[in-house]
Design a protein around this nucleic acid. Sequence first.
DNA 1: CAGCATCCGATCTGATACTG
DNA 2: CAGTATCAGATCGGATGCTG
Lengths: 119, 119
Amino acid sequence: MKLRENYTCPLEMTHDIIRGKWKPIILWQLGKSRSSLANLERDIQGITQKMLLEHLKELLDYDVVAKQSFEEYPLRVEYFLTERGEKLLEAVVIMQGIGIQLMQESGMESILKEKGLIG
Amino acid sequence: MKLRENYTCPLEMTHDIIRGKWKPIILWQLGKSRSSLANLERDIQGITQKMLLEHLKELLDYDVVAKQSFEEYPLRVEYFLTERGEKLLEAVVIMQGIGIQLMQESGMESILKEKGLIG
DNA sequence: CAGCATCCGATCTGATACTG
DNA sequence: CAGTATCAGATCGGATGCTG
């Protein structure tokens, strides 16, 4: 994800931060609970390790996510939302709500039910 | 902007809708007031007509934006937010807030002042 | 388990020129 | 003024194999 060097609008900046294909889902997952790389990889359907790491790195760079490494074997790392990340999650929650609505309109309720997102 | 055919999560769907480089800014502008193509082109720094139309088309497809055409000369069209668009704008507002904070931290206040976004 | 490097096809973006 | 077409370069995304 290449960020621009010049921003003429603050919105562009935040949007660039959340732009990648998987960023909102990562935030969503971390909003549920701090998590390891492997767990995220398992919880986010279809993501590759490469994409996950790449996106996490950007989120780290922008202080949206932070991580804690434990010096032990096997290696253990935990990623979690920063205060800014929690704030951004509010936007993600709104998007999730709209998504649910969209899926209901398109007859994709079955998926929502599977996930326990609706009754 | 190619959308996926399968969504396993409603979030992916909304994110795909807002994914393009200029979508949030378009929503922001339309949130301020309904507007013509030419006005949007002028108000959004750096956007090309092509990108603008392309993104508008997608926003139209997903009922986030609607348009009204007047059959007169010179041709006149007005784009505006739908109810769903207004909802999505809430997310955009949060992103804008975070962006302002980020720019302040990075010593880019001058840009914010120019735009009257901060004191 | 965490993280890195590389390769390649798919997508996105922007410039430019053109139509109603 | 609104909208379309085309083309090339930049970026993104995913598969795979490797290291500590």
